[in-house]
Design a protein around this nucleic acid. Structure first.
Lengths: 158, 158
DNA sequence: AACTCTGTAAAGTTTGAACTTTACAGACTA
DNA sequence: TAGTCTGTAAAGTTCAAACTTTACAGAGTT
């Protein structure tokens, strides 16, 4: 396969795959960067990434930290290497879902707690507003249902 | 309950609930607008919404169309009313998940199709690149797994 | 100790999404 | 038919996220 063709196919892959990652909370650069790392069989330095994406080194530094944070990427040790080296994690799907679902569950739990404390406050006030009371419990029910789904997913994944 | 307290609790509710909706692909205004409609027992006009959120009528018009698009809101007919009236849909969770999961599944299917056509192209080239071939099938496998999860959710919801 | 290199913090710039203002088409009203 | 009202399109503005440039701390090398 010639260089041009290889390049073109790589670009198509980056373009399509990154769209999927953007559906999750990754932004464009983070998504593209991950796909680059995923496609590269060798670990890459910040400078490699910079050249691959045509953006600044600082942009790479920031994006890679988000990806580390999302557990999609890891830093690897290579003896004698001066620059930091990163690679995409194996078992993409497991890593991805685990982190993603976990974050959502955490956020949901936080929101449920907040809603419940509003509920407590309303109860303490011996509110005359049935509407508000109903809306509140409906809102909490909604959040619990979402929580349930995400828990299902994380079990299904085991 | 006095006016101030009612107002304050409403605001807390909007603040917390809208965070949840923002986790899905709704933006801040759309999320807040939905919560406003959800909390209001009466259908609202664009002008009502404008006053509730303190933003322009055009902003409301745009946001409400997104919410209609997401099937979270409906326009209601009231005899003799000159202004359009909107309310949040009942069965929030069902409506929400159905629309949301459906959109994701559609997007995923599209991406899988694209990846497969890249795969075909690579095969036709009788590529020497085992790495690329492997990466491609791994990427498709990842997408299929995501698809699977979302299908699970939509079944679980029945 | 002086120099070099790497990663990141800080400051400044660019860009696109979200908003507002203005303009107007279509529906109703007198 | 002229006048009024409503929703939205179009154009212009604002603002926050994403980027780049510059500066620098810390580690390594000579």
């Amino acid at each position: 396969m010639n260089q041009d063709k290889q390049e073109q196919i790589n670009n198509q892959l980056i373009s399509e795959f990154s769209k999927t990652l953007e559906m999750f909370s990754l932004n464009k650069t983070e998504s593209q960067l991950f796909v680059i790392l995923f496609l590269n069989d060798q670990p890459m330095t910040l400078d490699d990434m910079k050249d691959s994406l045509g953006k600044s080194k600082t942009a790479m530094s920031n994006s890679i930290r988000t990806l580390l944070d999302f557990n999609l990427v890891e830093r690897v040790f290579i003896k004698g290497a001066r620059k930091d080296l990163y690679q995409a994690k194996k078992d993409l799907y497991e890593k991805f879902m685990k982190t993603y679902v976990k974050r959502w569950l955490e956020a949901l739990e936080l929101q449920i707690t907040s809603l419940e404390s509003i509920q407590d406050e309303v109860n303490d006030l011996h509110s005359d507003s049935d509407i508000l009371t109903n809306k509140l419990s409906e809102a909490i029910k909604f959040h619990r249902s979402l929580e349930e789904v995400f828990k299902q997913i994380s079990q299904y994944d085991q």
